[in-house]
């Protein structure tokens, strides 16, 4: 009996080890491109065709701001991403709440339409917009790129928000109205704070989707400035130089740092809340 148990435990351990190994290998696969991208930002070669030795020169070149094409593209991408994030988050948050809370005749149809940009290949929607914009006579440029980005960011924002609204929200809102707050006061002071984490993740998602988009930015740009991803796509033909790697390395470092700071702040807030909660008498039953 114990012999058998021992065997079983051993087998279980072996299986667990294999599972861990598998996970490590898969995660390695995900991080290979990131590692390669970072390593080649230190490559002492004019074009990234082969490894020629270590240098930090590309970072120097990057922050001498001499490569204006690259910086212009980044600034353009950032402006579009910020605007797309603001527009998509506002429309998406309102829409998410509205579509969850109210019943109206076209609701089913709108709900379906929201899933279209998420599911349909982006190129189809981009081309469809391109044709209709040109036919109607809208000039291609930043405005059209922005419309394109918002069109796929809004649905993600709506879905994120809808997932965060629960019955609790309705109870809170009703309590607020019963206590004499009007609709707008309730919305601003009760509804919005109660779904704040959802709003933050919708905004974050919109930003990452927009800043990394190629298809819409490429198809709807017209003759205007290229966004960073579109620039990289076109430069790739002739081989990229290390400063592009340096720039994207700086960007990912900023993103991860931002994430760490955010989670640190969140932890501090919840710690403080826990402390206050311990001091105050329990209000909610």
């Amino acid at each position: 009996m114990t012999e058998q148990n021992l065997k079983r435990v051993r087998k279980k351990r072996r299986l667990a080890f294999l599972a861990d190994l598998y996970a490590v290998l898969m995660y390695t696969l995900f991080y290979i491109p990131v590692a390669v991208m970072i390593v080649f930002s230190f490559n002492d070669a004019k074009r990234n065709y082969s490894w020629e030795g270590f240098t930090t020169g590309w970072y120097g070149k990057l922050f001498s701001f001499s490569n204006t094409t690259l910086w212009d593209a980044l600034v353009y991408s950032l402006i579009i991403a910020v605007l797309a994030t603001v527009i998509s988050t506002v429309i998406g948050v309102l829409g998410g709440i509205g579509l969850k809370k109210f019943e109206f005749r076209t609701k089913k149809f709108i709900n379906m339409m929201i899933y279209v940009p998420i599911i349909v290949p982006e190129i189809v929607l981009a081309v469809a917009m391109l044709i209709i914009f040109i036919t109607v006579g809208i000039k291609m440029g930043m405005g059209t790129i922005l419309i394109g980005h918002c069109t796929f960011c809004i649905p993600y924002a709506v879905v994120t928000i809808k997932g965060r609204i629960s019955g609790d929200n309705e109870t809170l809102e009703e309590a607020s109205m019963d206590l004499g707050a009007n609709r707008i006061q309730t919305f601003v002071r009760v509804t919005i704070p109660s779904i704040m984490p959802g709003i933050m993740s919708a905004a974050f998602l919109s930003f990452t989707l927009s800043i990394d988009d190629v298809v819409m930015s490429n198809m709807l740009a017209g003759a205007s400035q290229s966004t960073l991803p579109v620039l990289i796509l076109s430069l790739n033909r002739t081989g990229l130089s290390g400063d592009v790697n340096a720039l994207t390395t700086v960007m990912i470092v900023c993103m991860v740092a931002g994430l760490l700071v955010q989670s640190l702040i969140r932890r501090l807030i919840s710690k403080r809340r826990a402390k206050e909660g311990a001091l105050l008498p329990q209000e909610e039953g």
Partner: peptide, 18 residues
């Protein structure tokens, strides 16, 4: 998800380099 915050085009370029 973190690798997906790196630029998508650069991730593809990295596979080329690799």
């Amino acid at each position: 998800m973190i690798p997906f915050w790196t630029n998508g085009m650069m991730r593809l370029n990295a596979w080329m380099l690799f």
